[in-house]
Design a protein around this nucleic acid. Structure first.
Length: 859
RNA sequence: GCCCGGAUGGCGGAAUUGGUAGACGCAGCGGAUUCAAAAUCCGCCGAGUUAACGCUCUUGCGGGUUCGAGUCCCGCUCCGGGUACCA
């Protein structure tokens, strides 16, 4: 009895698949296609369990769809530009390209033994000159359509390293290398006009019915459509050339409670005043010493500076409101000025209490006219409130009605202008970094900022760079920057900003349909393969990557690279949970990998020097925190199928998992167990032997279990419940083992069950399934063979067990036919001894019979 | 801060979406096999109580709706993701 030998079987079957060309997709107009895609990896160095989980999920879907007769496209590539390559280059003195391509080679090699049904012929990296050139061509198209433009925007500036920092590089407001407090600095930067599609991106979410609701909700909230009004507040004395300050508000119904105005530190008025006011200048400087994240902005302590100026309340001109500069007002949002209504906004109330400003109610709750004290009154917008003053007529209106009525009222009197605004901002794509796709424009002294000629693309990054200093090496490169103006031919300077790496990942799915095309896409290939039928990736991409891709599809369609049918490029989306692990930090501040730490119940020490290691929370596996675990150990000891089986069985795909390898052994044991069921104890009949006409009941029971497995595993795969599908297969194996080998027709039933097992297990453990299939005498390759169909006649149950409750507590079980009528079920339930014991003397008040489910007797 | 999730035995999880809570797996315990071990096979396995049949409690916490709540509603706690320059 030899064991199943994965070391012999796995390479053999992978070679067979390759030889048969099963995964090299070709468009075939007469066949239905299925495009399954997992979010492609950043080549950080090594594949970790999180990657494996992602790609195996896609592989299960791809192999299942193949078995269902689809022409499947399942490509893979590399999201190859990014910050870690630059850091590695600085640390090791090598070119980011070298580091990146080395990593790709390593990771590809790690992926190879997993047996993924990938079409490697379509592979590319986003840093390949070809991809860079096509992306640059699209940038020029976007410029042409007004979808790419330049304006100034703020960045995190490290005043010591004299460089721009990513948000990740700012720790507690300080540069990660220099430790210097970061400053906000304005630079001219490139933007994509995603806001032009705000309404469409929002509306179209309704149609994404194969996306998770949570992602749709997050995207809706991110776009953040709101109806509000711009209200001018006249200055009592004009200042800085302004007669009035314009405030945008989504809660104009609180206008009667306005007690102050707050403007952004960078508001033109504030900027003018600070020139003559050192105290204000100091206040503003402090406000600008903050990193650019929304989180830092929102959680910072709210502070203000009284300018001494006043405005008149628009509907109560006798009221003068003070104008403050507030660190909680952002110039980018609305108009850079807001009115504060402390009674109905907690932030404003805190601010008012801190600086001694009044808090007057604009409305009360019905029957309760208590003025606000420590807590702002902000009832749900759908609850009725009682307005006072000029909105007193809206006695029991909801806040939403109050807002709408106020906008109309103000507009009718010329006191403001209703506006629909979006939270969504244009997409800043400029990065002051080397390792990215160069933005293909040229700055000429005579012609200004002009696009590069398409025939000069790709603009590739130089090989000879100096990474010894912080900042973008392109800025100080001796020759790369200098070029000829594409318009006048005179001397000019190349743009040194590169593109956000989210640009690279916003259209790779389209490029996979024709990776060698001489234009960004090929109409015929995109026409056949697009859209992605099933997209799979981490939930951490729920907003940015997915929203940018939706925008890109629209922009590409506008430029003729896709069509309107591709506006939503991802037909169905599945967001898998993240694979998490504890983090370990050495006392010297370095993050340590799990394999470099020895962990005990109450602490951890570094293997290298025995230092006590700080154990951090379990968070998503990432290169930067080093909390990654590689699949090699499991693959080496037990084979790829075991690794695949275990990682799919261990937890529901949408859930985060804490990685432990304790259960991998069970997956291996299972495969061996199934192999033994084939190889031991029973001579199995030939593959195509028909079912005996009348089978013995124990064998028939196994047949029913096998066909139920077909039904259940199929449904579980369709609904991404891979862990449940695998549980069904464990049950099927148990049923096979339970059937006595001496029972009549046992050999036939076992052979059929094992054939079904091989077919159902093949998406999860494809090498093993091939080996079993071939051992059973199956013809050709199992991969791509038709998916089994359950025999309906074997699915029906003769009798079912119904629980009987008395007053909601389970007291007995009765056996009934599945289609028994309610009256007979009720009679049977009431006759049951266990039930009668709990009924007492009286007759039941009520009997609830849910057919096929439950009986509840109420006394 | 704001937006979005999650919490079920010692552990990972299941529960047909309001109908038997704990499928399946891990760990553990007991037995068979073995000179012994590994491997394998069989059985037990939420807590309390009981000689036993049973009974009581139990799905992060506190309320509520319902014949019936892990599932729905209201209010919390803790953990995770995102927060526009990590990808």
């Amino acid at each position: 009895m030899e064991r199943y030998d994965h070391k012999a079987a796995e390479p053999k079957w992978r070679a067979a698949w390759t030889k048969a060309g099963l995964f090299a997709a070709q468009a075939q107009a007469d066949r239905p296609k299925y495009y399954v895609l997992e979010m492609f990896p950043y080549p950080s160095g090594r594949i970790h369990i999180g990657h494996v989980r992602n790609y195996v999920m896609g592989d299960v879907v791809a192999r299942y769809k193949m078995a269902r007769g689809f022409n499947v496209l399942h490509p893979m590539g590399w999201d190859a530009f990014g910050l870690p390559a630059e850091n590695a280059a600085i640390e090791r003195g090598i070119h980011p390209r070298e580091w990146t391509y080395d990593n790709i080679a390593v990771m590809k090699e790690q992926l190879a033994p997993m047996g993924l049904s990938l079409d490697w012929s379509r592979e590319f990296a986003t840093c390949d000159p070809d991809y860079v050139g096509q992306q640059q061509a699209m940038f020029l198209d976007f410029m042409d359509k007004g979808l790419a433009y330049r304006r100034s925007a703020v960045v995190n500036w490290d005043p010591v390293d004299m460089t721009v920092l990513a948000n990740e590089q700012v720790i507690d407001g300080k540069g990660w290398r220099s430790g210097a407090p970061v400053e906000r600095r304005e630079l001219e930067q490139w933007f994509f006009r995603i806001t032009a599609y705000a309404e469409d991106l929002l509306d179209s979410i309704d149609g994404l019915d194969a996306w998770p609701d949570k992602v749709r909700l997050m995207q809706r909230n991110w776009i953040g459509k709101s109806r509000g009004i711009e209200i001018p507040f006249p200055l009592t004395a004009p200042a800085a050339g302004l007669d009035a300050l314009i405030c945008y508000s989504t809660r104009p119904d609180t206008l009667n409670g306005a007690s102050f105005l707050a403007i952004a530190p960078d508001h033109p008025l504030s900027r003018t005043l600070e020139a003559d006011d050192p105290a204000l200048a100091a206040f503003n400087a402090e406000c600008r010493r903050m990193d650019t994240t929304e989180e830092a902005f929102e959680t910072a302590e709210k502070k203000g500076f009284d300018t001494g100026l006043t405005v008149r309340h628009p509907i109560h001109p006798e009221r003068k409101l003070p104008v403050w500069v507030g660190n909680f007002v952002l110039m980018d949002y609305g108009s850079g000025a807001v009115f504060g209504c402390p009674a109905h906004d907690q932030r404003d109330l805190d601010f008012a209490r801190k600086y001694g400003l009044p808090a007057d109610n604009a409305f009360f709750l019905p029957g309760d006219a208590t003025p606000v004290a420590d807590e702002a009154l902000v009832p749900p917008k759908t609850d009725p409130v009682v307005y006072i003053d000029h909105f007193a007529g809206l006695a029991e209106a909801t806040s939403q009605e109050g807002i709408d009525a106020t906008i109309d009222w103000m507009e009718a009197r010329g006191l403001g202008e209703g506006q629909t605004k979006y939270r969504l901002r244009d997409w800043g794509v400029s990065r002051q970094r080397f390792w990215g796709c160069p933005i293909p424009v040229v700055h000429c002294e005579t012609c200004g900022t002009v696009p590069e000629k398409k025939e000069n693309l790709p603009i590739v990054l130089p090989e000879d760079i100096d990474t010894s200093q912080p900042g973008n090496p392109l800025d100080r490169h001796p020759t790369w920057r200098n070029c000829a103006c594409p318009v006048c031919g005179g001397p000019a300077l190349r743009e040194t900003d590169t593109m956000d790496t989210f640009v690279d990942s916003s259209w790779y799915f389209a490029r996979f349909t024709a990776p060698k095309a001489e234009t960004p896409t090929d109409a015929a290939a995109a026409g056949y393969w697009m859209n992605v039928d099933q997209y799979i990736g981490g939930v951490e991409h729920a907003i940015l990557h997915l929203l940018y891709s939706r925008f890109f599809a629209r922009a590409m369609a506008e430029c003729g690279h896709l069509t309107a049918a591709n506006h939503e490029p991802f037909q169905a989306l599945f967001t898998q949970g993240m694979v998490c692990h504890e983090t370990y930090r050495h006392p010297d501040g370095r993050w340590l990998a799990p394999e470099d730490v020895s962990r005990t119940a109450d602490g951890a020490t570094a293997r290298a020097d025995g230092a006590a290691v700080e154990v951090g929370p379990s968070i998503k596996m990432s290169k930067s925190k080093k909390n990654v675990v590689a699949p090699e150990d499991i693959v080496e000891r037990y084979g790829a199928d075991t690794a695949r089986w275990f990682i799919m069985s261990d937890s529901p795909p949408e859930r985060d998992v804490e990685w432990t390898a304790a259960g991998a052994e069970a997956a291996y044991r299972f495969l061996q167990r199934v192999w033994r069921l084939f190889s031991e104890g029973l001579a199995l009949p030939a593959f195509a032997t028909p079912a005996p006409a009348a089978m013995g009941e124990p064998a028939e029971a196994l047949r029913r279990a096998a066909h139920r497995a077909i039904r259940d595993v199929t449904a579980d795969i369709e609904s991404f419940a891979f862990n449940k599908a695998i549980a069904r297969l464990y049950e099927l194996a148990g049923a096979v083992a339970k059937l006595d080998a001496e029972a009549p027709d046992a050999a036939f039933a076992r052979r059929e069950a094992l054939e079904i097992m091989a077919r159902l297990a093949s998406p999860f453990a494809p090498h093993f399934a091939e080996e079993l299939w071939s051992a059973l005498g199956g013809e050709g390759l199992l991969t791509g063979a038709a998916w089994p169909v359950a025999d309906e006649t074997l699915l029906a149950e003769a009798m079912i067990v119904l629980p009987v409750q008395v007053n909601g507590k389970r007291r007995a079980e009765i056996r009934v036919a599945p289609d028994a009528d309610a009256a007979s079920v009720e009679a049977l339930a009431l006759a049951d001894e266990g039930v009668r014991k709990h009924l007492g003397d009286g007759a039941p008040r009520k009997v609830i019979v849910v057919p096929g489910r439950i009986v509840n007797v109420v006394v």
